[in-house]
Design a protein around this nucleic acid. Structure first.
Length: 590
RNA sequence: CGGGGUAUAGCGCAGCCUGGUAGCGCAUCUGCUUUGGGAGCAGAGGGUCGUAGGUUCGAAUCCUGCUACCCCGACCA
C-alpha cells in the first residue's frame, strides 16, 4: 500500500518509529524536579506511603486523592508499559472508555441499586444521573452487544488502562488504597465455557509474565469469587509483611489460596468419651483465653459458640468452633442457613436465644440450629459455655450430652494444616492484591442482552471474563516489598531511572564534568534510562537523595578515580560499593 | 457509620494547663567559605494559630458549634 500512495507525496512521509514510554530515556537532575524530605510526614503509616512522600513521588490533594509527581509518574508509566505489552502479546485489544457513565446502563445491569455508597454518583446540568466508573462491565458489555454480532468475531478481549474512582469508606496507606487510582481492566467475550477458560488461562499466563518482568515476588492464589458464584477466580498477590490479605500456600505442590477461600481438610477421629458432663463456676470469664487460663486447659479443648443471623425460618444460627480456631466469615456466609453478608447476633438476640451474654454461650440445650466446624465436631470431653452467665460445662460429648451437629468447614486454616491438594502442609504469608482475574460467565451479558449468532444462526449469550490489575497499587506494593532503612530499592524494570551518575565536586573539576558527560552520553547510547545528577550538591546529599529515590545502579565519577581510569559502582541492594574499570561500566547494567 | 486523636510557616514540632499580641529544627532566598555520606557562618523572607461564634480590657491559650485530616473495626485492584 505504501508503494501505491508514495507518488502522491511531494516529500516522502516521515518514517514513524515505535514510540513507547521507555523511548524517552535519560534526564539531567538540574532539568528535572527532585523534591525529597528528611522528615517523615506524620500522617503516613506504612513504609511505601512514607517513602513515596519523602522521595517526592506523590502529593496528596485530598482524602484518597494523589497527584503523581514527575519521579513517581515514571514508575507508573513503566508499570503501564509492561502491562500493556503483555496484554497486547496475549492478543487483547486496547480501548479507552469514559470514566463518567450514564446511570441507565447501571440500571440495566441492576447495579445502580446494588452498588452502595462506594459508587460516586453525580448529576449533569440536565439533572441526568451518572456515576464515575469504579469498573467498566456495563460499558464494555454495551460496546460488545453493539459491535459483536457473529460468533466469527469471538473470542475477543478488550482492555483499558484508566482512572477509576471508588468512594472507599476509609482510604488509607496513600495510593495503596486510594479513592482515585489507575487500573488496567480487561474483559473477554467468548462463546461457551471452553473458550472462556482459554481466555482466562491466557490472562493467567499474561499476568504471570507481567509480574515476573516487574521483578516482584508474588503468588497467584485461588480466591472466593464473591456473589457471582462458582466461577474460576485467581488473585495475584505481591508478598509483603504489611499486606492486608492472608495468603495460604502449600510447602509442596502449587496449591495457594486466599485465606478466605483456603479449604480445611479435617483429619483424625473423635476420642472416646471418658468424663461425665459437669457444670463449673467461671465467674467473670468472657473469652476463650480466660476460660482456658482459669481451668488450666488448652484452648483447643474448649468450644466457642457464635450466634449469627440466619434465614427467615431460623433467624438465629449457632456456629461452633474449637477455641483456638478463627471463624472464616466468607465460608460462614456461603452456608444456606446463614445470612449473607454475615451479621453477628446482637446482645439482645443472644439473651433471647441463649438466656445469657456472649461469653457464656454453648451448644448444649441450645434451641437454635447448631453448625459445627469439622474440628470442633471431633472433640470429646470438651468444655463449653453453659448458657448461664458465670458457668461453663466440662466433659461434654457430642451424641451423648447433645445431638450430633451439622458439620461444615467453618474456620480459617492455620499454619501447619495439611494442604487440600497435592500433599504438604500450609504456610501463611501476607499479601497485597494487585491483580484479579475471574470468569464472570453471563451475568452481565444476560441482563444486558449481549448475544451473537452462532453457526446455526441462533442467538447465543456471550460468556465474559474480567481481568484487573491495580497499576498504581503495584507501585506501592513494590516498595513495601523492596525497601530498606535508606529508602526504596526499585526492581530495575519499574525504577524511575535505571542508573544514576553522581559526579563529585563537578563545579570545581572540568575533568569530572567531562568524564560525567561522556559517561552520560555512553549510557544513553546504550539505551540505559540514566539520571545525570548534575546538581551542585555535596556528595552526601546526592547519595542520600538517590538512595531514598531507589535508583538501582549508581556510578560515581571523581578526580581521584579518574586518575586511574576508574569508576565507583554501587548496586542499591548491596551494602558496599566497588571500584571498577571505566571500561566495565556497561557490563554492570546492560 | 461507630470509637479514639490531631489541626500553630512548605514539612516536623513547641507554646495552651496558669489568657498579655507567636517560637524552634528542616526547607526556601542572599553573601562568603566548603565539596566522598543530608556542610559552616552571617543575614532575609514566610503564619488572619482549621473555621464560626461566645467569655474577657485582652484569646493560639478558656467555652460551644462546625469542618478537615489521621488512627482502630464492616469493602476492594
Amino acid at each position: 500500500m505504501s508503494g501505491a500512495h508514495r507518488g502522491r507525496h511531494a516529500v516522502p512521509p516521515a518514517r514513524y518509529t515505535a514510540c513507547q514510554t521507555n523511548e524517552i530515556k535519560g534526564m539531567r537532575a538540574s532539568q528535572f524536579h527532585i523534591s525529597t524530605t528528611k522528615e517523615t510526614p506524620n500522617d503516613a503509616e506504612i513504609a511505601s506511603h512514607q517513602l513515596m512522600l519523602r522521595a517526592g513521588f506523590i502529593r496528596r490533594l485530598g482524602s484518597g486523592l494523589y497527584s503523581w509527581m514527575p519521579m513517581g509518574l515514571r514508575v507508573v508509566r513503566k508499570i503501564e508499559a509492561i502491562v500493556r505489552e503483555e496484554m497486547n502479546r496475549a492478543g487483547a485489544l486496547e480501548v479507552l472508555m469514559p470514566s463518567v457513565q450514564p446511570a441507565e446502563l447501571w440500571e440495566e445491569s441492576g447495579r445502580w441499586e446494588k452498588f452502595g455508597p462506594e459508587l460516586l454518583r453525580l448529576h449533569d446540568r440536565h439533572d441526568r444521573e451518572y456515576c464515575v466508573g469504579p469498573t467498566h462491565e456495563e460499558v464494555i458489555t454495551d460496546i460488545a452487544r453493539r459491535e459483536i454480532k457473529s460468533y466469527r468475531q469471538l473470542p475477543i478481549n478488550f482492555y483499558q488502562i484508566q482512572t477509576k474512582f471508588r468512594d472507599e469508606v476509609r482510604p488509607r496507606f496513600g495510593v495503596m488504597r486510594a479513592r482515585e487510582f489507575i487500573m488496567k481492566d480487561g474483559y473477554s467475550f467468548n462463546l461457551g465455557e471452553a473458550s472462556l477458560q482459554e481466555s482466562f488461562d491466557s490472562m493467567h499466563v499474561a499476568y504471570c509474565n507481567m509480574f515476573d518482568r516487574m521483578g516482584l515476588e508474588y503468588r497467584a492464589v485461588e480466591a472466593d469469587s464473591g456473589s457471582i458464584g462458582g466461577a474460576m477466580s485467581r488473585e495475584f498477590h505481591v508478598l509483603a509483611d504489611s499486606g492486608e490479605d492472608a495468603v495460604v500456600y502449600s510447602t509442596e505442590g502449587d496449591y495457594a489460596a486466599n485465606m478466605e477461600k483456603a479449604a480445611v481438610v479435617s483429619q483424625g477421629s473423635r476420642g472416646e468419651a471418658s468424663e461425665s458432663m459437669a457444670s463449673v463456676d467461671t465467674p467473670g470469664v468472657h473469652t476463650i483465653a480466660e476460660l482456658a487460663a482459669q481451668l488450666q486447659v488448652d484452648e483447643s479443648r474448649c468450644l466457642k459458640t457464635l450466634l449469627v443471623q440466619g434465614t427467615e425460618e431460623t433467624p438465629v444460627v449457632a456456629l461452633v468452633l474449637r477455641g483456638d480456631h478463627q471463624l472464616n466469615e466468607i465460608k460462614a456466609e456461603h452456608l444456606p442457613e446463614v445470612a449473607s453478608p454475615l451479621v453477628m447476633a446482637d446482645a439482645e438476640t443472644i439473651k433471647a436465644a441463649a438466656n445469657c451474654d456472649a461469653g457464656s454461650i454453648g451448644p448444649v440445650g441450645l434451641n437454635v440450629p447448631v453448625i459445627a466446624d469439622a474440628d470442633a465436631a471431633l472433640l470429646s470431653d470438651f468444655i463449653c459455655g453453659a448458657n448461664e452467665n458465670g458457668k461453663h460445662l466440662t466433659g461434654v460429648n457430642w451424641g451423648r450430652d447433645l445431638p450430633e451437629p451439622e458439620v461444615r468447614d467453618l474456620r480459617n486454616v492455620v499454619e501447619g494444616d495439611p494442604s487440600p491438594v497435592g500433599g504438604g502442609t500450609l504456610k501463611i504469608v501476607r499479601g497485597i492484591e494487585v491483580g484479579h482475574i475471574f470468569q464472570l460467565g453471563d451475568t452481565y451479558s444476560q441482563s444486558m442482552g449481549a448475544t451473537v449468532l452462532d453457526e446455526n444462526g441462533k442467538p447465543q449469550t456471550m460468556m465474559m471474563g474480567c481481568y484487573g490489575v491495580g497499576i498504581t497499587r503495584i507501585a506501592a506494593a513494590a516498595i513495601e516489598q523492596n525497601h530498606d532503612e535508606r529508602g526504596i530499592v526499585w526492581p530495575m524494570a519499574i525504577a524511575p531511572f535505571e542508573a544514576v551518575i553522581c559526579p563529585i565536586n563537578m563545579v570545581k573539576s572540568d575533568a569530572v564534568r567531562e568524564a560525567a558527560e561522556a559517561l552520560y552520553a555512553e549510557l544513553l547510547a546504550a539505551g540505559v534510562d540514566v539520571l545525570f545528577d548534575d546538581r551542585p550538591l555535596r556528595p552526601g546529599a546526592m547519595f542520600t537523595d538517590m538512595e531514598l529515590v531507589g535508583i538501582p545502579h549508581r556510578f560515581v565519577v571523581s578526580d581521584k578515580l579518574l586518575a586511574n581510569d576508574e569508576i565507583e559502582y554501587r548496586d542499591r541492594r548491596q551494602p558496599e560499593s566497588e571500584v571498577i574499570a571505566r571500561a566495565d561500566v556497561l557490563s554492570r547494567i546492560v
